[in-house]
Design a protein around this nucleic acid. Structure first.
Length: 600
RNA sequence: GUGCCCGUAGCUCAGGCGGAUAGAGCAUCGGCCUUCUAAGCCGAGGGUCGCAGGUUCAAGUCCUGCCGGGCACGCCA
């Protein structure tokens, strides 16, 4: 007994809502040629949960929407729809209400069947095929390997990982990718930062470049370098500093650090510098990778920008643009006429000095994603990157790809608080809070949940005090507690020498007529709808909100009724219900990357 | 200046492809543990959904303008 079976077009039903919509479509098709001149488009047929139980379990506004084009009164049309509804064991009663709503009152059988589906499908319950196997490349975090991840990256990691889970559960063929920006000047700056710290460790005294990476994390890199090469790359401070332009504030920090990088290459050779760079990069990447893995965030691919460049992909993309006549030389640089493809202005792809810009590698990278066979490209970006999307879309369009295949959820910033006090955070300053520190302080579960409980489109105030509190103020524990409580009920059941009879329980779901039981059934069976909504809207936070509501319905029920009662059919029905709650809570928390403890 | 996002209860936020009486948590106040975990439950108070127009049978939701806040606008990465 399951709610999933094939219907005529090969789709599978997913939850009660889809079944009702199918019934409604059948009714409307039956009216075509009569009260309706033609059958309405399928997407306009929508059934929604009612806010008020007085309006039944589900309601549809189709009659209101179709009344005008059909030239009928809404209530008249609604009545015709009700009359044309096919017989279904799911529907106890359907009626016209209000201005012309069709309200559906479900039969107990509908809930019994859905609950049975939860028991049967277990961890797979809630999943669907709405993605139709679409190949999605989900790129997220992609932080430069020039320092540890900070709390902002953490939010992107939590969002991306959970979105990936939700899409995978919804029938998308999703692959997760981290793009490593390991080419370009920033890596040189990291390398020179490591080298200067190394010289300090060796005993040389020289000023640290203003534009270098000043974070504490560079010191271990320097020590690692020393352990690897001894004094081989040590050079006297006087030789390093001789004849360099002034650093900020007197001089220009950019000019200074470029000169310093050049000096380093001269003194320790290109090979020596490459060695420092590789060690620094690998150490940082190792740190990032380990951090993410501990956070439960794993990637299918780690794509290297340097490797992309070496493969000739950038030259390939530029050649295609050239062949299409989309490039032009201006002021010694090569420009892509992005404004012809919806961008606000043209963009440089090759600078006057001959170096390709980041934008050039970005469009090459996105072209390559398409050429790898991905239909949909999702870039999870920090909110400050919003200008970037139109640019890359323009590039894709010019390369013959559909611009709409790229979507970019923008993740708003995170502010850290301790209670009411805001923790200041600099960008390149040494004072940022790392993801590692945050996780160590509040734990992975609270961290994941707090990152995901707000819409990603909304700036997040992350209160460390609240996340750490092991109290009723903390929503994570509230949900986990529901899971643990069910486990506890099962232990009690065993302790009393009783066992759960699932068949009897599912056969007696009709006995669960109390208001709290109806509320739990109602909330529980919404899970497939919530998951679908979260997938379609790329909105994991709806899942977090839903789990809170489900836990709330459960806790109320727990306080109102004893589950382990003497009457076996009723007892088994109640336990079937709360086991269903436990299963859905576990499934939902798993998608969010939060553990579901058996006891608390 | 231009573009994007945001403005909902004292605080933090859901709801936003229009739909029935606008929700939740926290905070405040008042109740519930001899019975499956009180990290829980029940109840109360708290709102001109920034302002002004418009579209519609119906607007927190769509459109326009304004006010207020955030972010982005390099031959940086």
């Amino acid at each position: 007994m399951s709610t999933r079976w094939s219907c005529s077009d090969g789709l599978t039903f997913n939850g009660m809502k889809q079944e009702l919509e199918e019934l409604l479509r059948a009714a409307l098709a039956g009216l075509a040629g009569g009260i309706l001149t033609e059958a309405p488009v399928a997407s306009s047929v929508v059934v929604e949960r009612t806010r008020d139980a007085q309006h039944g379990d589900f309601a549809s506004n189709v009659a209101l929407r179709l009344a005008k084009p059909a030239g009928r009164k809404p209530r008249e049309l609604a009545a015709a729809i009700v009359a044309a509804l096919p017989q279904s064991p799911l529907i106890r009663r359907a009626e016209v209400a209000g201005a012309g709503f069709v309200n559906f009152y479900l039969a107990p059988e509908a809930y019994a069947r859905e609950l049975a589906a939860i028991h049967e499908r277990g961890a797979a319950y809630g999943g669907s095929t709405i993605g139709r196997g679409e190949r999605v490349l989900l790129e997220f975090v992609s932080a430069n390997p020039t320092g540890p991840l900070h709390v902002g990256h953490g939010r992107q990691a939590a969002y991306g990982a959970t979105l990936g889970n939700i899409l995978a559960a919804s029938g998308f063929a999703v692959e997760r990718e981290y793009y490593i920006n390991d080419a370009g000047r920033q890596m040189d700056i990291l390398a020179v930062s490591t080298w200067v710290r190394y010289l300090e460790v060796c005993g040389e005294q020289l000023p640290f470049p203003q534009n270098g990476y000043r974070g504490e994390y560079v010191l271990p890199l320097a020590r690692q370098l020393q352990a690897a090469v001894g004094r081989e790359l040590r050079r006297p401070a006087t030789e390093v500093a001789a004849g360099l332009p002034a650093d900020a504030p007197a001089g220009d920090k950019e000019i200074y650090i470029d000169a310093l990088i050049e000096r380093a290459r001269l003194l320790i050779g290109g090979d020596g510098f490459a060695r420092v760079l590789a060690l620094s990069r690998d150490a940082m990447l190792g740190d990032i990778r380990g951090d993410l893995a501990e956070f439960g965030v794993v990637f299918d691919h780690w794509a290297s920008e340097a490797a992309l460049a070496d493969s000739g992909a950038i030259d390939h993309a530029l050649a295609v643009l050239e062949a299409q006549g989309r490039l032009e030389r201006r002021d010694g640089a090569v420009w892509f006429r992005a404004s012809e493809f919806g961008d606000e202005k043209d963009r440089v792809v090759v600078r006057e000095n001959g170096q390709k810009t980041y934008f050039a590698s970005d469009i090459a990278y996105h072209l390559q994603k398409r050429e790898r066979g991905f239909e949909r490209l999702i870039d999870v970006l920090g909110a400050d990157h919003h200008g970037y999307v139109a640019r890359v879309r323009a590039g894709l369009a010019a390369l013959g790809q559909p611009a709409a295949c790229l979507e970019a959820p923008l993740i708003q910033f995170v502010s850290l608080y301790r209670g009411a006090e805001k923790i200041p955070m600099g960008k390149r300053e040494a004072q940022f809070v790392t993801l590692r520190q945050l996780r160590a302080e509040v734990g992975n579960d609270a961290c994941r949940f707090f990152y995901l409980m707000r819409s990603h489109e909304q700036p997040l105030d992350f209160d460390l005090q609240l996340a750490k509190s092991r109290s009723n103020e903390n929503p994570v524990y509230y949900i986990q507690y529901a899971h643990a409580r069910v486990a506890s009920v099962m232990k009690q059941l065993a302790a009393r020498g009783l066992s759960f009879d699932r068949t009897e329980g599912l056969a007696n779901i009709g006995r669960l007529a109390a208001s709290h039981e109806q509320a739990v059934l109602g909330s529980l069976t919404q899970y497939p709808e919530v998951l679908e909504q979260a997938a379609v809207s790329r909105a994991p936070h709806t899942l977090a909100h839903y789990l809170r509501e489900l836990a709330n319905a459960f806790h109320s029920y727990y306080n109102a009724e004893a589950f382990i009662v003497a009457d076996p059919p009723l007892r088994n029905a109640r336990i079937a219900l709360v086991l269903g709650v436990q299963q859905v809570v576990r499934n939902g928390l798993a998608l969010l990357g939060v553990s579901a403890p058996e006891s608390m």
